[in-house]
Write a protein that binds this DNA or RNA. Structure first.
Length: 393
DNA sequence: ATTTTAGGCGTTGACGCGGC
DNA sequence: GCCGCGTCAACGCCTAAAAT
């Protein structure tokens, strides 16, 4: 998706965490120019965005036949659910992958959003309990009781499932229920777990930083056999994660800041990447910061709006026999729907081009005539219509 | 704050396919 | 036939993981 750079590129952004210099540098692909948006990421702004790339998970701009379902109603109902529950992105079970999305039942993102609060509560995960408990206390006591019962059942069911030979249990101590599957620990992490206590005893009161430095030295001085042993354990832990994911019916681990971390039916999940939404919000200089809850609501509201807009635009497109949504369809809806009056200025240019085509019989204007309704006024000088974002840079 | 590493995500060009 | 979209592979960037 092209479009004007939202934020000036800043390649000077150094990343202390990155240590990929040893990675093979041969580049079969031409040198790529990184988009500017992430380059200016502030240290505190999480970049993570597990929203599966729209073009990869089948949720791309092309609107499919599944849209024939009633988005209008479900969207509003869903909005209510969001406001009452403020679901957290962490709750979702896994990132949206091709496989999961293409189950088609819940594959359509808009459909995924259209879930009522009851169903939502029924699928609540541990992460929700942990993180959303405070916010939801009081109004959802019953739901929580039910969820806890389910949890206990799940725990009992999953007891006895081994850790695939890994020495320690999952660090988080959580059951592998899909949302709390601990990530596979690297050899380094396993080494830390083994030696941290010893170092602490040798250097009581040592801060974490200096202690980690000592451990780092120890790691570097480790013999090949020991490194291999930890590598083997790490591989086993990796296998453990694989097994737990399979048992949970997931293909990917959920990520914490993931907004769309839902493969296996995460009805409360978001599709838009939170980090990107946050960044977009902050583009407005008058906006200092946005709270987590605010961000979630803005994101959800945006998704609901997108669903409604796409649904109506698609219906307009269908009237002309098309199966794909075009800018003119969106413009037609904006001009036809009174509640979209505030967007008309943004779509005048697109609207104008449509009218011009319609005025020329050979341009297929008659075909789309049924979908056009409103008149066109001149585009204000210097105005930048939304439709300019449809064009590649 | 501090370490290392696995893995997720964004971006890009290339390619194939379908719509117009 | 042209155009645009979806998918893929590859790479770089970034986060999460543990502990206190």
């Amino acid at each position: 998706m092209a479009g004007p750079p939202l934020i000036p590129s800043s390649s000077s952004n150094s990343n202390a965490n990155v240590k990929k210099d040893d990675k093979p540098k041969d580049k079969p692909c031409p040198k790529r120019r990184r988009k500017s948006i992430d380059d200016t990421t502030t240290p505190t702004a999480p970049r993570t965005s597990t929203a599966a790339a729209p073009n990869k998970d089948g949720a791309g701009p092309k609107v499919t036949q599944e849209k024939e379902q009633d988005h209008g109603e479900t969207a509003s109902a869903d909005a209510d659910a969001v406001i009452s529950r403020t679901p957290l992105p962490e709750d979702s079970s896994a990132a949206a992958t091709k496989e999961g999305q293409e189950g088609q039942g819940g594959g359509d993102d808009a459909d995924g959003m259209a879930v009522d609060a009851t169903e939502t509560a029924g699928r609540t995960t541990d992460a929700e309990q942990a993180e959303g408990a405070e916010a939801e206390q009081g109004e959802e006591g019953q739901d929580h009781e039910e969820e806890e019962e389910e949890e206990e059942e799940e725990e009992e069911e999953e007891e006895g499932e081994g850790e695939a030979g890994v020495a320690a249990s999952p660090p988080s101590g959580e059951k592998p229920d899909g949302s709390k599957i601990a990530r596979a620990r690297s050899a380094w992490m396993l080494f830390l777990a083994d030696n941290r206590e010893g170092v602490r005893k040798e250097h009581p009161g040592l801060a974490v930083g200096p202690m980690q430095k000592i451990l780092s030295e120890m790691w570097k001085a480790l013999g090949e056999a020991e490194v291999a042993r930890y590598a083997k354990l790490a591989a086993e832990d990796k296998e453990r994660v694989k097994n737990e994911l399979a048992a949970a019916g997931l293909t990917k681990l959920p990520t914490k800041n993931s907004s769309s971390a839902a493969v296996a039916g995460g009805p409360t999940s978001l599709v838009l990447p939170l980090a990107r939404v946050r960044k977009t919000v902050r583009l407005d200089p008058s906006v200092g910061n946005i709270s987590k809850e605010g961000l979630l609501l803005v994101t959800k509201a945006t998704e609901v709006f997108m669903a409604v807009l796409a649904d109506h635009a698609w219906n307009i497109g269908r009237q002309t026999g098309r199966k794909s949504v075009r800018p003119c369809d969106v413009a037609d809806f904006v001009f036809a729907a009174p509640e979209m009056y505030w967007l008309k200025d943004e779509f005048r240019e697109e609207r104008s081009s449509v009218k011009k085509k319609q005025s020329r019989p050979e341009a297929g204007g008659a075909k789309a005539a049924g979908a056009t309704k409103a008149g066109v006024t001149a585009v204000p000088k210097g105005a930048k219509p939304i439709t300019s974002f449809f064009q590649k840079a």
